[in-house]
Design a protein around this nucleic acid. Structure first.
Length: 804
RNA sequence: GGGCCCGUGGUCUAGCGGCAUGACGUAACCUUCACACGGUUAAGGUCACCAGUUCGAUUCUGGUCGGGCCCACCA
């Protein structure tokens, strides 16, 4: 068989992808009720750009598992979706098309989004296919698609019926730039330079005054009260009094409140509705206080704020500080750095304003959520701590309404007459209340309705990916076996978003966890171990990496880290991956050239062959155990080690003589070598197939496909451990042989001789002389020894004398 | 401020009670009939630091220092 000298990954990867697609290698079979099902809740990547290196890293890791399970005989349910609704997509389209969602008709903007998403989708998905992700891409969903809308809206209606949904006028975290409510999970800390301003407030009916310290003086028009610690001696005399606000000439009460920190600033704090969470808490403790709303949704201040009207926070702050300076109420203004909550999607400082929003009521279920977290099997284990931490720290119900355009609409209307909420009916979903009308009249008899304009938060939909995926098979008998799913793979940054919300929905709807196991990937870092970011300019594009080193090399790199561990991208690791492919190609070329006409059937094994097979089956045993615990990196590392050093560096060198000079050996010895070669190479291909699917299948196609009668290595069965082949005596004898060979190689190396140089005489003294006899001919051949003597020794140490 | 993870030869990494893995890099040699994208050999580590437990610690416990991630209302 004439094979090309070099392995061309570009040509090969492309061709194999076509082959896999044509032969439906990764197709889930919904009609197969024999095989056990392994179902994966594949993360739908957010369609807000191209696949980045972090994606290729974590999707590769989950793909190792999917491929392993498939080879273990599971009917693998491995769908692929895209998360293409919501703010991230809106932002992408605004940038791409140079438009502003707010300055164009809603319909038009949505149409533009849908059209653009449709256009971009195939190219976006292509990257996942290029790295060899073995999803069944025919099991596909888009989170903005009708199928997802239907399920998302149905979930809302069901939760509404259960009494888990509420609509409330309440202070809410608000992004003035995106002009929408946002959730706790969308916050991001950011440090800002600011000033801590000490402002004098006069006590009403007295000459005294107190000084407050604040970073938000511009909120003074919304000030509703001042607090001191009840035990603070300095201010005890003022309990029950009022202070007069400068400029606004309004009086607000001084209220003792034990949450006030006596140490901070002056020990006096003023509360404005709403300066922050602390203010909202304070309001809850003092319900007699009425809030003052001074902020518009766009972040400007309302007319009630007098001189500050129309200004945004920063300008207003400057203005009021100038005024307070003039009136002599500004005592001092000192620069500070402080941490402020910002909206993670746009970096804008968030504000708290009051507005009506929809919530999933779940704060009463924290204990259940903690219990659910404990039931889930986490890999690595310690990732659960993040979930627990998050659940314990929850303080808001889940706000699911967004004042945006491109999302799944709330399936409801309000009666114009009596204001009653009119829900859509489940069998008419999906609906768009802006276009559709309720089927029935309101209870009050009215037929006029106001549509709800809000859309769901993306997580309200993406928390339903298990249902979205499996309901594509709703009419098949296999449907009932798909849930709870076997596995949720994802990266650690969205444990508190996606993982948590999926658990929440599953617990609320089905009182069960959505999956049995979860595997959490780490992040891909830059070569110096730093996070990649556009602003640092250290972003590495996986597309470039694939172009340069191949998809196998990229995956090989991703297999080099444990679950949950971050991994720096180092080009040398990619080169190692590429070299592995080349080495496998070359070793296979050699092996296959000796396997023509070989029919794999058991023969009596030569000693060194028994040694190799013993090592191989030990490897298979360990690898299977490791993979079952999702420790894929061990399988990759051990197999690589076995392949390169045991198989190539030693076994192939030893067996060469038997293969080339077969007349010097018995037919049985020759066949033993061929059997061992076939068996071992096939096993190595299989063990590596989850990691480097291209090169392994390429080699498999050259020979094994016909012999085995299976179309792809990815459709073959994972190697089975044959315990009879694990043979301690054979393993030990072979190891001694390898040690002898190393001695001789060292002797040749020291004399600066080629390894092919003949040795006049080699004398071995060992207490395992009997066992070594069986290896004599092989050792003699590989070392090109003219004379080989094996002497029985009593010492433990092996003695090798090499005469060159 | 709380929680979690991590600190192993120049770089990345395995191991996690008893001679410290491997890769890349480095040096010398070998163009041997699968492979020079190769082979052989070699150099290179007080396993961050300090205490403790133990016959024995890189591995366990406590602390210190350093790095990372997540969370948190100090105005």
């Amino acid at each position: 068989m004439e094979l090309p000298k070099n392995y061309d990954f570009k040509e090969s990867e492309k061709r194999l992808r076509q082959h896999w697609e044509q032969e439906d290698i990764y197709r889930f079979n919904p009609d197969d009720l024999e095989k056990p099902v392994y179902s994966i809740d594949t993360p739908p990547p957010t369609m807000s750009g191209k696949m980045h290196l972090g994606h290729s890293f974590s999707y590769s890791q989950q793909d190792f598992v999917a491929r392993y399970k498939r080879m273990r005989g599971f009917n693998v349910f491995y769908p692929f979706g895209v998360d293409d609704n919501g703010l991230a997509t809106e932002r992408m389209i605004e940038q791409l098309k140079q438009v502003k969602s707010r300055s164009m008709p809603r319909d038009e903007f949505i149409a533009l989004c849908l059209k653009t998403v449709d256009e971009l989708q195939p190219g976006f998905i292509e990257d996942w296919k290029r790295i060899g992700i073995s999803c069944d891409f025919s099991i596909f969903y888009s989170t903005i698609g009708d199928h997802s809308r239907k399920i998302s809206q149905r979930s809302f209606i069901e939760l509404y019926t259960m009494g888990r949904i509420k609509r409330e006028l309440a202070p809410i975290m608000w992004c003035p730039s995106c002009q929408t409510a946002i959730a706790q999970v969308e916050l991001k800390d950011k440090e800002f330079e600011s000033t801590l301003n000490h402002i004098k407030l006069d006590i009403e009916g007295s000459q005294d005054s107190v000084v407050i310290a604040t970073t938000r003086p511009e909120l003074m028009p919304a000030c509703v009260g001042v607090s001191v610690h009840p035990k603070d001696k300095r201010y005890k005399k003022y309990h029950g009094k009022k202070v007069k606000l400068p400029i606004y000439n309004r009086s607000v009460p001084i209220i003792p409140d034990e949450y006030t920190d006596m140490e901070y600033g002056t020990g006096v704090v003023y509360y404005c509705t709403y300066g922050g969470v602390e203010c909202i808490d304070w309001m809850l403790r003092h319900p007699e206080i009425k809030a003052i709303d001074i902020m518009n949704p766009d972040g400007t201040l309302k007319p009630e704020s007098g001189i500050l009207a129309g200004l945004k926070s920063e300008a207003a702050r400057k203005k009021i500080l100038e005024e307070l300076q003039k009136t002599g109420h500004l005592v001092k203004s000192e620069p500070i750095k402080h941490v402020v909550n910002t909206h993670e999607r746009c970096g804008t400082q968030i504000e708290y304003i009051r507005s009506e929003q929809w919530y999933v009521r779940y704060l009463d279920l924290k204990k259940e959520f903690l219990k659910a977290g404990r039931k889930l099997k986490w890999y690595p284990k310690h990732m659960r701590a993040r979930y627990d931490n998050w659940v314990k720290g929850l303080r808001w119900d889940w706000c699911i309404s967004r004042q945006r355009y491109f999302g799944v609409p709330f399936p409801l209307w309000y009666c114009k007459k009596c204001n009653e909420v009119m829900l859509a009916e489940i069998n008419e979903l999906p609906v768009d209340p802006l276009k559709d009308k309720p089927r029935k009249a309101c209870k009050c008899g009215s037929n006029e309705f106001i549509p709800e304009k809000d859309v769901f938060d993306t997580w309200a939909t993406s928390s339903l990916t298990p249902q979205i995926a499996i309901e594509l098979f709703k009419d098949k008998p296999i449907y009932s076996r798909l849930f709870p799913m076997s596995l949720r793979p994802q990266a650690h940054d969205i444990i508190t978003f996606w993982l948590f919300y999926t658990v929440v929905k599953s617990q609320l709807h089905y009182k069960t966890n959505p999956w049995h196991d979860t595997i959490i990937s780490g992040h891909a870092l830059d070569p110096h171990g730093k996070k990649m970011s556009k602003s640092l300019g250290n972003v590495i594009n996986p597309q470039d990496v694939i172009e340069k080193f191949g998809a196998d090399a990229l995956r090989f790199w991703a297999a080099g880290s444990k679950l949950g561990d971050d991994l720096p991208y180092q080009e040398k690791d990619l080169m190692t991956g590429q070299r592995f492919a080349t080495k496998l190609w070359n070793a296979s070329k050699f092996a296959l050239s000796h396997l023509e006409g070989h029919k794999p059937r058991k023969t009596k094994l030569e000693a060194i062959d028994a040694w190799l097979l013993s090592k191989l089956h030990t490897l298979i045993l360990q690898s299977t155990k490791a993979f079952d615990k999702y420790e894929y990196y061990r399988v990759k590392a051990d197999t690589e080690q076995f392949f390169w050093h045991i198989l190539c560096d030693n076994y192939l060198e030893i067996v060469k003589d038997r293969l080339y000079n077969k007349s010097a050996y018995t037919q049985q010895a020759y066949e033993s070598a061929r059997f061992t070669l076939y068996h071992t190479l096939l096993a190595v291909l299989k063990l590596m197939a989850p990691f480097t699917p291209f090169i392994t299948d390429e080699v498999y196609q050259l020979h094994f496909a016909q012999v085995e009668g299976v179309k792809s290595v990815h459709s073959t069965a994972w190697p089975k451990v044959q315990r009879k082949l694990i043979n301690a005596a054979a393993a030990e004898a072979g190891d001694i042989a390898v040690e002898i060979i190393a001695h001789a190689r060292k002797a040749k190396s020291e004399k600066k001789l080629s390894m092919a140089a003949p040795a006049k005489k080699i004398v071995i003294t060992t207490n395992k002389a009997d066992a070594l006899k069986a290896l004599e001919q092989d050792i003699k051949a590989v070392l090109k020894a003219e004379v080989l003597e094996i002497k029985p020794g009593t010492e433990k140490d092996l003695k090798v004398i090499v005469e060159l």
